[in-house]
Design a protein around this nucleic acid. Structure first.
Length: 570
DNA sequence: GCCGTTTTCGGCCCGACTGTTTTCAGTCG
């Protein structure tokens, strides 16, 4: 699937036009096209073949032609033409905080800056302050930006950012001038990776709140601080933005500060078409405020149903809200059990009994013990004999821990040659079988896809775990044709997992949405290796919500009886 | 370059903060 590749070309095209000082609306159009392509749940090549490219909002005739050109030749001549006189390294400079297209264009033309390297040269020479519109402070700012860029650690995972974000939110809520405060931005939308933490607060004395915020113990560096907002850096070099508004505009501000940017732009366009204006202070029409206190009121006055934060990505949610056809999203309370858990029989740290008691304490009706299979030596995978012994232990724990159904299962390896690590007669003895890939990551797309498809076709396999094998910010997924996998899963009734482990969140939001659209059932599991990790279920649920997933799409929302029936065991 | 329950041409989201300026441009979200 070339969607992301082509999106990258348009992103670069937008960058280069921007640096050259081209028409901003053209830049925007290419950026939008890039984003839309990146979010597309279908293979763009298929859409092109069917001549439906211009049906996609944001893709017009010009962009469609360029997409077709790329699919045919692997190149876009317009992009090549724009890049002819532009040094490649110049585009990278857009990643430097505080450095935008205008400044980059200026540095390029006046000082022949063409990369991070030549920029640092000019910073050392001290030639930047003498340029028009520049000064000592700007030069120092750029130098700091270059440092931050070179030492950047990429985005943080949602799971790693939630604890410090929540702690900081509590710190803000504890300030006496603060009336209300909430997390906003991509944290509130539940994106799997986070660039920075956004916090909104309401107060009648915004200036006080801002100045006290910048003095909180967690704050390591103040990047900017004004009368209503501040940016700081906390430990781990995570940036935190605080915005403070009057209580009367809290809803409009929360909406604005939650984003996404594209969602906001869409809403503002909608407001405009109704002769109104939307900003962080409210929805207004001819100086009259129509709504501002709550998000619900703003959506309502725009003629929309309330849109949950997880859906606010401009992926069709505004149109759906206008026609009252937003899906009813799954909630964590819908989850009745966890179907992928490890114990100290393989590479987990907790016992079967501890896991059962912890799951029961969470109010679950069932849990599945699914330790690794024999070939996964590094994880102390179970032999056929030990698997049988484990079933005996599970039987004895069932007698001690009542009120929760303990399923005996396995996370069986789909081996490199495509076979399943346990013979069918062993799998048949189990209540549930989770299958997954842990080896042969570098195989061709065709082979890996074939391995997973054949696992789906095994009638004993109930769930495919972490279907793409990716780790957020650290390991690319293996090459897999998810379209073929989803078709096989739909046909065979095999569920695909949304793995809630903080480093995985696999399937992703977009892929979960594709799965639902293809008629595939999902399972949201934690893959816990310790009782402490059962709580990451919330991350998987948020990811599912971002994928427009409802409770009816998820296996482990079923009652115990229905689940057992569905698994073909009773 | 894209788009259309006001439009096939004329629009295209909006405001805070900073630093360079004597009223604004650039950047960011």
């Amino acid at each position: 699937m070339k969607n992301l590749e082509i999106a990258g070309v348009f992103e670069h095209l937008a960058d280069v036009i921007e640096i050259k000082g081209g028409e901003p609306f053209r830049v925007n159009a290419y950026r939008r096209a890039a984003r839309v392509l990146g979010d597309l749940p279908e293979d763009v090549a298929d859409i092109a073949t069917e001549g439906r490219l211009t049906d996609i909002k944001g893709i017009g005739k010009g962009t469609a032609r360029k997409i077709e050109e790329y699919l045919e030749t692997g190149d876009v001549s317009a992009y090549r033409k724009e890049m002819r006189d532009v040094p490649e390294g110049l585009l990278e400079l857009l990643g430097v905080p505080g450095l935008g297209p205008k400044t980059i264009g200026l540095l390029w033309k006046e000082l022949d800056v063409r990369s991070i390297k030549t920029l640092r040269r000019e910073l050392r020479r001290g030639s930047i302050p003498s340029l028009p519109g520049m000064g000592e402070k700007k030069a120092a700012n750029i130098a700091a930006g270059v440092q931050a860029y070179l030492s950047r650690s990429g985005r943080s995972t949602l799971g790693s950012i939630l604890p410090p974000a929540t702690a900081l939110l509590e710190g803000v809520r504890a300030l006496d001038a603060v009336l209300e405060a909430d997390l906003a931005g991509s944290v509130r939308r539940g994106r799997s990776t986070i660039g920075d933490i956004d916090i909104l607060a309401s107060s009648r004395r915004p200036g006080d709140v801002v100045s006290r915020f910048t003095k909180l113990a967690d704050v390591e560096e103040v990047l900017a601080s004004g009368g209503t907002k501040a940016s700081v850096r906390i430990a781990g070099s995570v940036q935190v933005d605080l915005r403070v508004v009057e209580p009367s505009s809290y809803g409009a501000a929360l909406l604005y500060f939650t984003g996404s940017k594209d969602h906001n732009v869409h809403l503002r366009g909608l407001a405009q078409s109704r002769g109104a204006r939307l900003n962080e202070y409210g929805l207004t029409k001819r100086d009259r405020t129509l709504a501002s206190r709550t998000e619900e009121a703003v959506y309502h006055k725009l003629g929309l149903d309330f849109i949950p934060p997880e859906l606010r990505e401009d992926r069709g949610e505004v149109e759906a809200a206008a026609e009252s056809r937003l899906p009813e999203l799954i909630e964590e309370s819908d989850i009745r059990g966890d179907l992928h858990l490890h114990t100290n029989w393989s590479d987990g740290l907790s016992s079967v009994e501890d896991m059962a008691r912890a799951a029961k304490a969470r109010g679950y009706a069932y849990l599945a013990i699914t330790d690794h299979s024999r070939s996964l030596g590094v994880a102390n995978g179970l032999s056929v004999e030990r698997l049988a012994e484990q079933r005996e232990e599970i039987e004895s724990v069932r007698r001690r821990v009542r009120g929760i159904r303990i399923l005996a299962g396995t996370e069986v390896d789909i081996l490199s040659d495509g076979t399943i690590d346990f013979p069918d007669e062993e799998l048949e003895k189990l209540d549930i079988v989770v299958a997954s890939i842990h080896t042969g990551f570098t195989q061709s797309e065709d082979r890996i896809t074939g391995r997973i498809v054949s696992a789906c076709e095994n009638p004993n396999v109930d769930i495919i775990a972490h279907p793409t094998g990716g780790l957020l910010e650290s390991r690319e997924p293996y090459a897999v044709d998810l379209e073929r996998v989803m078709e096989a899963a739909a046909e065979t009734g095999t569920a695909l997992e949304i793995n809630s482990h903080p480093d995985r969140l696999d399937l992703s939001d977009v892929n979960a949405r594709r799965a639902v659209a293809t008629g595939v059932a999902l399972a949201i599991n934690t893959d816990s290796h310790h009782t402490d990790q059962l709580g990451s279920m919330g991350l998987g649920v948020v990811t599912a919500r971002r994928g427009w997933v409802g409770p009816e799409n998820v296996l482990n929302t079923l009652t115990t009886a229905r689940l057992m029936k569905r698994l073909g065991r009773s």
